[in-house]
Design a protein around this nucleic acid. Structure first.
Length: 835
RNA sequence: GCCCCCGUGGCGGAAUGGUAGACGCGAUCGACUCAAAAUCGAUUGCCGAGAGGCGUGUCCGUUCGAGUCGGACCGGGGGCACCA
């Protein structure tokens, strides 16, 4: 017997034992009900951080809890191992991206193992290995053959110095984040996945995801952005064809004062071919930046083409056609009709270019003559609109659609904001796109027998650009179709493709194909997925799309990949700055009363805002250091306490020390001590209440509440005198604590003579009858204010309660002999006396 | 600009419309100790000596009763962003 729990000795011993026993291996053939618990896999950036620890601890608690409940649990871990940081490291440190990545994986795997996570390491995967991405290439070809992949020219942000494409986030103030060079918009041939084909079902599918946060569903809904409206054609006055436009406000059709087309519209481009001024205008539009701030402040620019169209409801009415910089080519038809009176952009445009502004919507028909002084975008009734006059906005819109369809000049349509997913990246460290370009045959898929298309290892990063492009031999292949010399596609896939199906590969890992359908379906969908809210849109939408695409081509009969989703908050820490403004790490400062000082120099330090842990602000705490000092269980416990899991958790010394203290308290309780055959029914009730509360909290992922209940039970046991119930309560406490502090639980379980591993014990059950007390406290209110409480046996009648309450001394004083107007009795809860 | 969420002690946070502040952190006092650490006990929303009064961002409403429901406002955070 030792008086202190020693994590340094215990943690690794139990980790080895779990590993040796294969405790957490998931058996796909098991007859038990299955539970798939998954946390978003990490990018192997170097070392794990507290955010990872929090994320994986939550998943681990759930996995261990489900296991004790009798589920066959799949709880795997892997590495989202392709991506730019590896290439940046290659350029800066002259290491190969593969070597850098694999070293990081080794480091981070060891770090995760120290935390004792109940993971099935036999299913570990890394997306940068051919036995993962080769299967991805096969799936890509499946989608290609099903017509869900296509190639088109598209505009990208091009960094002329690094000779690479940049994501929007990498363009800062119009310049490449790395090179600082002015970014150009360049058109490149790129591969796209037809996610827009699935817009409707991805949107409708959100309705079935009742275990997702409302916030995430809403974000996806807005991202997909469905709008219903009218699509119709304006005839060109010169008879040279038509211009098709889309509107969500067909009711304002009589308020049109111009038609605007995008600079990329075919009519604009045709015009530019023989008019230098038009060409110059279009070029000017292209220069604009793509950042949010630039777009917001961008001035509306227009170019009067001199063309005219006729109004569909009045052939004598002609509207001018402008090229306008705010019209997007890839939304709707790339053209719109401007209604300055009822659209903010159109108003700004019309004001600048002196186009007419008409009122066609008003609060009532009587207001038809009021001038429009700013864009009125709300609903109302139609005015100055011929046959629509007096109709409410929605009815007027429906009427126009009806007439357009009847007369054949337009139709009701649904538009989506969602665009197809461009997956080409001009990068080395990614999945090679398995396509060969042949002069004669076009884009030809790599034959299945030749998969995987393996990334060449002999590449250099000393010159900017894509090393695959420069490789002397890799891209030179013969066309699989005609045999003539051809060129391999040198773009790689967006890393979001890698993470769009890894959860399927975890569930089933045959060597000869991406997954076995029956085995995958035995596990999917993921029962509980946990990760950061920063993936609320892209990753989660792409994974949903990929799953539906596989379903459409008959590879998987699963509609939604993630049944339950939980987005956890960040781990934050106070920040510290020296007098010169430089950031200081928590280890460099020390508290001195209410102030902070720099340990080395003794200079005063300013404690700043609490922010997400980040290297740049130096407010990071390394998990390894903390595990060394306090052990895995204290870290895990702290990650779960205090803050609700969806909110940010502030790291603090006090918090981790409190957690370590709790670990020792439980340890002391489990020490052999005097036991008697006495009963302790109060403690027994407390215990059953705790079992119920902890189970309910864990089911709802409310770890902080489970922690609070366990603190209460621990205190109650500490205060209880020796008894048979006390001894039983300790054993049950250990089981309740086991998912959260597994090393402590195993060690204490073994010490107090428990058989086998506590991880294998069934989860405790509670007795409903013991959840209610015989005696209840009744609140006595007068006019809704608490005046007294009284203790009564449960189930006392309303009359008895009322009598007791009225008899209470404090009530009698307030009543002063008067009769109450009314008495409200809630049995077993309260009596409210109304005077 | 549009959409969404959140405002409770010194701090993190509990609370099916029914005793606001569980639990933790911090703090104060005490016990043990030569001393410290560790541990244990007590107190801890605010005002007040006390009786009592006041308290969940502000105001209004619904209700016997509101942190919780409805409305307006103030403050903080997040998402989208020229989407026709």
């Amino acid at each position: 017997m030792t008086d202190r729990f020693d994590p340094a000795a215990s943690d690794s011993r139990w980790q080895e034992r779990w590993e040796r026993d294969g405790c957490f291996r998931a058996d796909s053939a098991s007859a038990k009900p299955k539970s798939y618990v998954l946390e978003m896999f990490p990018y192997p950036s170097g070392r794990i951080h507290m955010g990872h620890v929090r994320n994986y601890t939550m998943g681990d608690v759930l996995a261990r809890y489900r296991r004790m409940q009798g589920f066959e649990v799949l709880h795997p871990m892997g590495w989202d191992a392709f991506g730019m940081p590896a290439e940046n490291a290659a350029m800066e440190k002259k290491v190969h991206p593969g070597a850098w990545t694999r070293e990081n994986i080794a480091t981070m795997r060891a770090q995760l193992k120290r935390l004792g996570f109940a993971l099935d390491w036999s299913r570990e995967l890394a997306t940068c290995e051919p036995d993962y991405y080769g299967h991805e290439q096969a799936l890509f070809l499946d989608l290609f053959e099903a017509g869900l992949v296509y190639r088109k020219e598209s505009e990208v942000n091009w960094d002329p110095v690094d000779m690479t494409v940049l994501a929007n986030e990498q363009v800062i103030d119009g310049r490449g984040w790395r090179s600082g060079a002015a970014v150009e918009r360049r058109k490149l041939n790129q591969w796209f996945l037809r996610i827009t084909d699935f817009a409707e079902e991805l949107l409708d599918g959100l309705g079935t995801l009742d275990q997702w946060p409302d916030k995430v569903r809403l974000m996806q809904e807005n991202w997909i952005g469905r709008s219903r409206g009218l699509q119709f054609r304006f005839a060109r006055a010169d008879g040279a064809g038509e211009i098709e436009v889309f509107t969500t406000r067909p009711d304002t059709i009589f308020g049109a004062s111009f038609v605007a087309i995008s600079p990329g519209h075919p009519i604009a481009e045709a015009l530019a071919a023989d008019r230098p001024d038009a060409a110059e205008f279009i070029a000017r539009c292209r220069q604009g930046g793509t950042t949010a701030a630039e777009i917001e402040t961008a001035e509306k620019l227009g170019f009067d083409t001199g063309l005219e169209v006729t109004h569909p409801l009045d052939p004598s009415w002609r509207l001018p056609v402008w090229i306008a910089n705010f019209v997007l080519m890839d939304y709707g038809t790339g053209a719109l009709f401007g209604v300055p009176g009822h659209d903010a952009r159109d108003f700004e445009f019309a004001t600048k270019y002196k186009l007419s502004i008409r009122r066609v919507v008003a609060a009532s028909i009587a207001d038809a003559g009021l001038a429009v002084t700013e864009a009125e975008t709300g609903a109302g009734v139609a005015v100055n609109s011929k046959f629509l006059d007096g109709m409410a906005t929605p009815a007027a819109a429906a009427e126009i659609i009806r007439r357009a369809e009847a007369a054949g000049w337009g139709r009701g349509v649904t538009q989506y904001r969602l665009r197809d997913w461009g997956v080409s990246r001009q990068r080395y460290w990614g999945t090679p796109i398995p396509i060969i370009h042949c002069q004669a045959c076009g884009a030809v898929p790599v034959p299945r027998a030749h998969l995987p298309v393996v990334l060449p290892e002999d590449v250099s990063f000393d010159v900017p650009g894509n090393p695959l492009d420069r490789h002397p031999a890799w891209s030179k292949v013969d066309c699989p179709s005609c045999g003539s010399p051809a060129r391999r596609e040198t773009d790689t896939l967006d890393t979001f493709v890698d993470s769009s199906w890894y959860f399927i590969r975890f569930s089933s890992q045959p060597g000869d194909r991406p997954f076995d359908q029956a085995e995958a379906e035995a596990w999917l969908p993921v029962g509980q997925y946990i990760g950061g809210v920063e993936h609320a849109i892209l990753h989660l939408l792409y994974a949903r799309f990929w799953t539906r695409a596989l379903q459409r081509i008959g590879r998987l009969s699963v509609q939604e990949p993630f049944k339950g989703l939980f987005t956890q908050g960040m781990v934050t820490h106070e920040t510290y700055r020296a007098g010169d403004g430089s950031w200081l790490s928590p280890g460099e400062v020390r508290r001195d009363g209410d102030d902070w000082v720099h340990i080395e120099s003794g200079h005063p330090v300013t404690a700043g805002r609490v922010e997400k842990m980040s290297k740049s602000k130096k407010n990071v705490v390394d998990p390894d250091t903390i595990v060394d000092r306090y052990g895995a269980d204290a870290v895990r416990w702290f990650m779960l306490s205090d803050s609700p899991p969806e909110r940010d958790l502030e790291w603090s010394i006090g918090g981790i020390e409190g957690a370590a203290r709790f670990v020792q308290r439980v340890w002391r309780l489990a020490q052999p001590g005097a036991s008697t055959a006495h009963e302790d029914s109060d403690l027994r009730r407390r215990l059953h209440k705790t079992v119920a509360a902890v189970g309910q909290a864990l089911d709802g992922l409310q770890f902080n509440k489970a922690v609070a209940s366990l603190y209460e039970l621990t205190s109650a046991i500490e205060k209880a005198k020796p008894s048979a119930d006390r001894a039983a309560a300790v054993q049950t406490l250990l089981k309740l604590v086991a998912p959260m502090a597994p090393h402590l639980a195993e060690e204490a379980w073994a010490q107090c003579g428990g058989s086998g591993l506590i991880a294998d014990q069934p989860w405790p059950e509670h007795d409903e009858a013991l959840l209610v007390d015989d005696q209840v406290t009744i609140a006595v209110q007068v006019n809704g204010k608490l005046r007294d409480t009284l203790t009564a046996p449960r189930g006392l009648t309303r009359e008895m309660l009322q009598a007791q309450a009225l008899g209470a001394e404090k009530v009698a004083r307030l009543l002063a002999g008067a009769e109450p107007k009314k008495v409200i009795v809630v049995p077993d809860r309260l009596v409210n006396i109304v005077l």
